[in-house]
Amino acid sequence: MDPESVRAGERVPHGGDTDPDVLDFSANTNPYTPDGVAEVYDRALEQSRRYPDDENPDFRAAAAEFVGCTPDRVIPTPGGLAAIRLAMELTLEPGDDALVPYPSFGEYAREVQLQGASPQFVPHDEILEAEGDVLESAALAVVCTPNNPTGDVADPDELAAFAARCGEHETTLLVDEAFLGFTDQPSAAGLEAEHVIVARSLTKLFGLPGLRAGFAVASGEQRDALETARRAWSLGTPAASVGAHCLRQDAFVRETRERVARERARMTNALERRFDVVPSAAPYLLCNVGDRAVDDVIASARTDGVAIRDATTFRGLESHVRVAVKDREANDRLLAALDVLESDDRTGTDGAEARK
């Protein structure tokens, strides 16, 4: 990390509301957690009287099975953002350029700048088309799939072709799959290319954002460098134990995907009564509020006890909000707060809900 760039840097805004009396739709996390999480955590807490096993063999095995790679390629990290920072620390030097999508996760540009490098912004739906001199000049390219906040997923064949071009130009490709677990799309871990690093987060899919568990996937010398560079004891015992447990809950993941897809479609239909809604494959929807003031829409929802994300903080967005997709009851409260819920939207309890 470049000291001068750190001193000149700033924090960036994110979703998430700490008020327990507010229904939080500004953060895109599962409202449910898998069965057995509390019991696993309690056992791990007792084991935390000793330093954690820095090899994390069970966590690596569970993560590898989840994304379809070998355990030795998994690098445990305290959350997906830690994997992103680790990859950038390894890849970027002061003066380098990095291709960064927009609108997208604000931490990409910040992390690039903290290394003393420069983000070169590319429209998120055009970054897979980059080639030639654009790639030649970039030390790193970032792809977010599904992209946050738009929710579109990178086509696996197009991503593979882009990865191949990155390899030709010796550009490292960082693929952020923080929300890919909400879809049935394959992980870029399957590419098994030495210049490709995948970052994964457990906390969104499994409803545990405060646990801070994630991992990177890499190959060859890149993998060895990440393993050497990661902090000692980078994943605490509770996070490693609960993470491994969650990654093996196939039924929970399947039920979550089905619920999110069903509720997302229902919410889209309702929200389109007032807003332009961007098609999404993720557990969130980006809404253009048009000539309405974004601050007024957010304030009105909060009056009804609902927090939504001000998406104007994303580069290139000027009249947008983002809302999470949660369970049916909570989603109805959101739709009512935004004045788009009608009687025929209330279809009763969803029997296929994931278990708490």
Rank of each mutant, 00 (worst) to 15 (best):
R266F: 09
Y51R: 15
T256R: 05
Y32L: 04
M1W: 10
D295Q: 13
D224H: 01
V143W: 00
E258N: 06
G151H: 05
S234W: 12
T18D: 14
A330Q: 13
D35R: 15
V253L: 13
R85G: 11
Q249V: 05
A117Y: 01
T29P: 05
R110F: 08
L114F: 00
T347N: 15
G348A: 09
D19G: 03
P101G: 03
E329S: 15
L334F: 04
S234M: 14
Y108G: 02
T183H: 04
I84L: 10
V12Q: 04
I75V: 14
F66T: 10
V253S: 10
A141P: 00
S343K: 13
V297N: 07
L191P: 01
V22Q: 09
P123C: 10
F215A: 10
S201M: 08
P76D: 12
P94F: 02
V278N: 09
R85H: 13
R165G: 03
P103E: 05
R73N: 08
V6G: 12
S300Q: 11
G116T: 01
V74D: 02
V37W: 07
A117L: 00
E136D: 08
A261R: 04
D53F: 08
C144Y: 03
P52C: 02
A138E: 01
D327N: 06
V74K: 08
A281M: 12
V112G: 01
L202G: 12
Q249R: 06
L205Q: 07
D339K: 07
T183E: 06
G305P: 07
P52H: 03
P3C: 09
Q120I: 05
T150M: 07
D2N: 15
R274V: 15
E107Q: 08
